[in-house]
């Protein structure tokens, strides 16, 4: 067992965990933040996406003990049913889901994607590497490829993200 403390959704948390505990299991099983989902548990689906120190990661492929002192944002920290984050609201407006299982990961990822574009991080489909990337359907699709949706809600997901990106610009 090891001790680890980090901030989750702004709140300081201290846990004593088996070293094997992933960040995903720490959130779900120990902190009861079950919004973050376990799909594949192997980095292949994106359902477990959370934002750590401002960057999206797969929480299933990270050990909780590796996050000492980190600030973690999960879907619960982005917004609540009463006070939704604009990305959550846009997913509702555009029906960006069917079963909803991939949705928390999609939304965390989408929020981070728009920040990555704003920060000038290029992508595989950016035509000119030295130019600033801009929001486009192709850019969103490529950058969101780490989030699989078994229900195939992709086109509505792209619409939701496009709307939020437009509002921001």
């Amino acid at each position: 067992m090891v001790k680890v403390s980090f901030k989750v959704n702004g709140q300081a948390r201290a846990l004593e965990l088996d070293t094997r505990t992933t960040l995903l299991d720490a959130l779900r099983e120990h902190l009861r933040l079950t919004g973050t989902k376990k799909g594949c548990d192997h980095g292949q689906c994106g359902a477990c996406t959370v934002i750590v120190e401002g960057r999206r990661i797969n929480s299933c492929l990270s050990l909780a003990v590796m996050h000492e002192g980190d600030s973690i944002t999960t879907i619960e920290g982005l917004g609540t049913p009463e006070k939704m984050h604009p990305m959550q609201a846009a997913f509702v407006t555009h029906d960006g889901y069917q079963c909803g299982y991939c949705t928390p990961g999609q939304i965390c990822s989408a929020v981070a994607v728009l920040n990555e574009i704003k920060a000038g991080v290029p992508s595989h489909v950016s035509a000119d590497l030295t130019a600033r990337p801009h929001v486009s359907v192709d850019e969103i699709r490529e950058r969101m490829s780490g989030n699989i949706c078994r229900c195939g809600a992709y086109s509505n997901i792209v619409d939701a993200i496009t709307e939020v990106a437009g509002r921001k610009a």
Binding site: R56, I57, S126, G146, N147
Partner: peptide, 14 residues
């Protein structure tokens, strides 16, 4: 280019 062609945004962040 090679890096951006690999894995996903989440994985490349780690």
């Amino acid at each position: 280019r090679a890096l951006l062609a690999g894995a996903s945004g989440q994985l490349r962040n780690r």
